[in-house]
Computed example of a mutant assay.
Amino acid sequence: MLAMLLGGVMGLVLGLTGAGGGILAVPALVLGLGWSMTQAAPVALLAVGSAAAVGALDGLRHGLVRYRAALLIALLGALCSPIGIYLAHRLPEKILMGLFSLLMMLVAWRMLRREAPAPGPSDHGSASWGQKNCLLNQQTGRLAWTAKCSATLAALGAVTGVVSGLLGVGGGFLIVPAFKQLTDVQMRGIVATSLMVICLISAVGVVGALRAGVVIDATGGAFITAAIVGMLVGRGVSGRVPARLLQVGFASLCLGLAAYMLYTAAR
C-alpha cells in the first residue's frame, strides 16, 4: 500500500509538472521504502518511463513532439547510459545519495527562478540565427538540422544518458531547460519532446539494470502501476492549478527531500 501511495504521488507530480517530477521516484523508494540507490534506480526509471510514455503518446497525437530530435537525444542517451550504470554499481551509497541531493537542489533552484514568458502564441518560438543552436524553419515549422544543431542535441543526449544510468532519473530536468536555452521551440513542444526522450532513455536504462542482475519485485510493480495512474490524473487536472504554485511547491518538496537525503547519507 505504501509503495502504491508513493508511486501515485510521484506520477501525479510528473503529470502536473510535465517533466522533472520523476526525480521524486528515487527519494520515494530510498526514504519511503528503505531501498538502496542501486535497487531504487531501475524501478524509478521504469515508473518514470512508463508514465512519460502516456504523455509522449498524447504529444505525438497532437503533433507536438520533435521526434527526430527526441530520437537523436535518446540514441546518444542509450549509448551512454551503461556508463552511468557501471559507475552506480561501483560508487559508495553515500556518494550516490549526496550526488542525488545536489541534483535535486539544482532542479529546485531552476524551478524557483522567474523567467520571462516565451513569445509567440503557437509552437513556433522567435529567435535570430546566432542566439540559438537549433532554430525552427518558420515556413515548415521543423528544426533546421545544421551540424551545430545536431552536435548540440547529441551532447545533450550523452549527458542525459550518463546521469540517467547513474542516478535513476529520466532526465527531464536536463532536457527541458536545455531545450529552452538552445532552441526556439515553445514550451508545450519542449515538454512533449522531453517526455518522449524520458520514455526511450528510461527503457534502455531498465534493460541495462536488469542485465546487471537487478530484480523488480511485486512492490516495485505496485509502485510503477500507481505512477502511471497518478500521471493520468495529473495530466487531467494540470490546467486547473496555477503554474507558479506548481513550481514553488515542487521546488520546496525537492529542497526538503534533498536536505533529508544529505542528512541520511551523513549518518
Rank of each mutant, 00 (worst) to 15 (best):
A56E: 12
P42H: 01
G20Q: 09
M196H: 03
G125L: 14
T193R: 06
R211Y: 09
A251H: 09
L245A: 15
G15W: 11
V48I: 14
R114H: 15
V191E: 11
S202P: 06
V237K: 00
A265S: 14
G84L: 12
M97E: 12
G84Y: 06
A151I: 09
I201L: 02
R110G: 03
S101A: 15
L75N: 03
G125A: 10
R61V: 10
V214E: 10
R113T: 06
T183I: 08
L112I: 03
L29H: 12
L102S: 07
L166V: 13
V233H: 03
A258R: 04
L257R: 04
L72T: 11
T219S: 15
V197P: 06
G120T: 05
A258S: 14
L135P: 08
A78L: 11
P121R: 04
W109V: 08
G230P: 07
G205W: 06
D123V: 11
T264G: 03
A209V: 00
G15T: 12
A251W: 05
L24E: 10
F223H: 08
G256R: 03
H89F: 12
A158Y: 06
P42G: 06
A51V: 07
L174W: 03
A118R: 13
P27L: 05
G141S: 08
G49S: 01
L99W: 02
M97N: 07
L262P: 02
A51H: 00
S36G: 10
A3S: 14
V162L: 13
V65H: 00
K94Y: 13
S101E: 10
T17R: 02
A266Q: 08
K148L: 09
L57H: 00
A40D: 12
A192T: 11
V207D: 06
G22P: 13
R66I: 04
A41K: 08
L91R: 10
V26E: 12
V43N: 02
G239Y: 00
M231P: 02
N133V: 06
A47H: 04
G161Y: 11
A147G: 10
P177K: 09
G157Y: 04
I95G: 08
A78F: 02
G32P: 13
M97D: 08
W35D: 01
G221L: 02
L136C: 04
R113Q: 15
L14H: 08
G32L: 13
C254F: 13
R240T: 11
V163Q: 05
L232P: 02
I190T: 11
L76V: 03
G249K: 10
